[in-house]
């Protein structure tokens, strides 16, 4: 699912990632971990095309992301779901509208959007909450809405950047259980986190970064 060959990312003279070689297979669950500033978020940004590598080759689902043009970026992102620490929900839109956005941008008919949104809200435990606004929900619930939006179009890969960073213990576990369930349905899941407790409770492969280098995979 993911192939990285000698990938490097520099910001001016500062190297955020150095000579990364990596394979992640379809259906795997991996943590991207390491201390702050180790390169976890940069790694995810390269995967969803927000940044291009300075050097090396990066394939995601067979797509060469290292040379991705702006025109081809939407195609890549339609096949992946992304979850952020700060949820990135649109406050002026209802929960249902937020979740349905990924389907709306590809021109899905409204009736199909409605049906699919109800189904994924059920998966994340928010059935019947589609008409509420994000500000009416708890942090954990908002993150579950973000997860629902990320999986509504059945992506083959799900990237989560510190998805439990703003949540307390119980809520973090709830979100992890949902991610685990999504992975069991065949989606490749990469979670960037430095929460050691969470990684022990849900033990999966760890990709550990230090000073931009992959030191454990």
């Amino acid at each position: 699912m993911i192939r990285m060959y000698h990938v490097q990312k520099k910001y001016g003279e500062i190297a955020a990632l150095r000579d990364i070689n990596l394979r992640v297979e379809k259906g795997e669950f991996c943590y991207v971990t390491g201390p702050s500033g180790a390169g976890k978020s940069t790694m995810l940004k390269l995967l969803y095309g927000a940044e291009l590598p300075t050097d090396g080759k990066l394939l995601v689902g067979g797509v060469d992301v290292s040379k991705l043009s702006d025109r081809k970026l939407p195609g890549l992102r339609r096949n992946m779901g992304i979850v952020f620490q700060d949820f990135k929900l649109i406050q002026s839109r209802t929960v249902g509208e937020n979740v349905g956005l990924a389907l709306e941008v590809i021109g899905t008919p409204r009736a199909d959007i409605e049906r699919r949104v109800q189904a994924v809200l059920g998966i994340v435990g928010l059935r019947g909450r589609g008409a509420e606004y994000p500000r009416m929900l708890s942090g954990g619930e908002q993150q579950r809405v973000a997860v629902a939006r990320a999986i509504v179009n059945d992506p083959s890969i799900l990237l989560a950047d510190e998805p439990t960073g703003n949540l307390d213990g119980a809520m973090a576990i709830e979100v992890m259980e949902i991610l685990q369930a999504i992975n069991l349905r065949g989606t490749t899941v990469l979670v960037a986190t430095h929460d050691a407790g969470l990684m022990e409770r849900f033990p999966y492969r760890r990709l550990r970064f230090e000073h931009g280098k992959l030191v454990q995979s």
Binding site: P74, R77, R78, K88, I90, V105
Partner: peptide, 16 residues
């Protein structure tokens, strides 16, 4: 801007 950023992240084209 938040809405547009999210649209781009979920795969909306520039035209859309």
């Amino acid at each position: 801007r938040d809405e547009l950023e999210v649209q781009k992240l979920v795969g909306a084209t520039g035209t859309y």
